[in-house]
């Protein structure tokens, strides 16, 4: 495990890392890289495009390297370290240019910021680059809120929505706070609380296929509480959760749906129908 977290001696008794301090945000940069994530790439590409538009609207030039693929999280959480490391290294090489990286999915951003340290724990040289990447990685809502400090005019009709945040992202990245604050800037949007809001939706990557019965019970409960909230739709900034929740809703043959926060935000502030 990384020396950044723990005592230097490899077999010394460990203590937990200190509480993360409040992150210092840089001024708005002229350019960023968007890391689209594999789930968004294949299943929610329009949301990725809306994220690009939201950034461009703030006067930022967005790069989308065509060589990008996946952050490596599926292999990492499944215990396949070597495979995770290979894929992670490919992204690290690609993003190794000092440019801020914006990720429209909390758990993938968390992978860059928190878990690459563990993935490359045995490689001190790589760890320096990992630290550098961690410092300039931002989840989309965090970036819009704290770096761009967006000031928006809400051009949409009054609506009520429920917000779901990925568990790992909320715990690693505070995404629930960022998303709530961003939504708070839209004066005609009311965010409704739902029952057990902080509870996992049951995705958990390969968990949902390894333990489909338990995961199914979790997503059933989640979709029910979202629908019971009275909201007309759910928004989330995490592709995995969105795929899980929408897939379940579709299977249940109900009309209620979730969509990516980027699409929702773009629609509200541009006045255009999202792509």
């Amino acid at each position: 495990m990384s020396e950044l977290f723990y005592d230097a001696a490899p077999n010394a008794t460990r203590v937990a890392p200190e509480r993360p301090k409040v992150r210092n945000y840089p001024d708005k940069p002229p350019e960023v890289t968007l890391f689209g994530t594999c789930v968004m790439d294949l299943f929610f590409p329009e949301a990725g495009l809306d994220a690009i538009r939201l950034l461009e609207r703030e006067g930022i030039r967005v790069h989308f390297p065509q060589e990008q693929s996946c952050c490596g999280q599926p292999a990492w959480t499944s215990g396949y370290v070597k495979e995770a490391r290979e894929v992670a290294l490919a992204q690290l090489n690609l993003l190794d240019n000092g440019r801020p990286v914006v990720v429209p999915s909390g758990s993938c951003a968390g992978m860059f910021r928190q878990h690459y340290r563990e993935v490359f724990a045995d490689e001190p040289e790589t760890l320096k680059r990992v630290e550098d990447l961690a410092e300039r990685t931002f989840e989309l809502t965090e970036f819009l809120l704290h770096v761009c400090q967006v000031q928006w005019q809400d051009l949409g009709e009054p609506t009520q929505i429920a917000l779901h945040t990925s568990c790992s992202a909320r715990r690693e990245m505070n995404t629930h706070l960022h998303a709530r604050q961003l939504l708070g800037k839209l004066e005609k949007v009311e965010r409704l609380e739902h029952d057990h809001e902080s509870e996992c939706c049951g995705f958990g990557g390969t968990f949902s296929v390894r333990m489909p019965e338990v995961a199914g019970a979790m997503v059933q409960d989640k979709t029910r509480s979202l629908m019971d909230s009275g909201a007309v739709e759910m928004v989330t900034a995490d592709g995995g959760c969105l795929m899980n929740i929408n897939g379940s809703l579709e299977k249940q043959e109900v009309a209620f749906r979730g969509r990516h926060l980027a699409s929702f935000l773009w629609e509200r502030v541009s006045g255009e129908k999202a792509s």
Partner: peptide, 19 residues
């Protein structure tokens, strides 16, 4: 996956394409 979800259908164009 389809125990709890509809089958996941990829979009017609990827984010790579759109971007």
């Amino acid at each position: 996956w389809t125990q709890n979800h509809s089958a996941p259908v990829p979009a017609r164009r990827s984010l790579h394409d759109l971007a």
